[in-house]
């Protein structure tokens, strides 16, 4: 079967790849582009480890047909850091012990970014809602919720 040429923006950089029909965006990012920051947890939409932003909206890469990303902007955790500096959300996750094994962290950070980009001063309930599609088997969620709220607070002061 022939492959389809696909171009999109990946963390602000233009990329071009060839995909098999039916390839999901998670496979495209990890295996064809080499961005290992979105994680494979379930391939079923259930865990959120593969969360990425497409044109600023939170999407599950494992349930996204790769070719639907054509011409769009895909952001992953790899694009979050600003040069050598951690993004304020990353810093807040580190300071608040919001990552243990770290497997859910890339997805959590992207879900949190999607929230703060639209709503820089969220309530606790809004943070809980924003990460409700992301499963964490280590932290019990409290440190993650606190980290997102802390990052929002830090932004307000900056």
């Amino acid at each position: 079967m022939s492959k389809t040429a696909l171009q999109f923006r990946h963390n602000g950089r233009d990329v071009a790849i060839f995909v098999d029909g039916g390839t999901n965006l998670l496979v495209a990012l990890r295996e064809l582009i080499g961005d290992m920051t979105p994680k494979f947890g379930c391939g079923q939409g259930g865990c959120g480890a593969c969360s990425v932003l497409i044109d600023g909206e939170l999407h599950l890469a494992c349930l996204t047909l790769a070719e639907t990303a054509a011409g769009r902007s895909v952001e992953t955790l790899d694009g979050l850091k600003e040069g050598p500096n951690l993004h304020p959300l990353q810093r807040a996750f580190a300071d608040n012990f919001a990552a243990q094994c770290g497997y859910c962290t890339p997805g959590m950070l992207m879900a949190a970014k999607a929230l703060l980009d639209r709503n820089p001063q969220p309530s606790r309930a809004e943070v809980v809602e924003a990460i409700s599609g992301n499963i964490c088997r280590c932290t019990g969620y409290e440190p993650i919720i606190n980290a997102v709220l802390a990052a929002a607070g830090n932004r307000a002061r900056a």
């Binding site: 039916g22 391939g43 079923q44 939409g45 599950l60 349930l63 047909l65 639907t68």
Partner: peptide
């Protein structure tokens, strides 16, 4: 037919061989 794909892509990821072509 592939709408948002949240169920169709799930089936493809599981290797559902009943889907051989997708229309969008």
């Amino acid at each position: 037919y592939f709408g948002g794909g949240t169920l169709v892509m799930r089936a493809l990821n599981e290797g559902d061989v009943s889907i051989s072509s997708i229309v969008r």
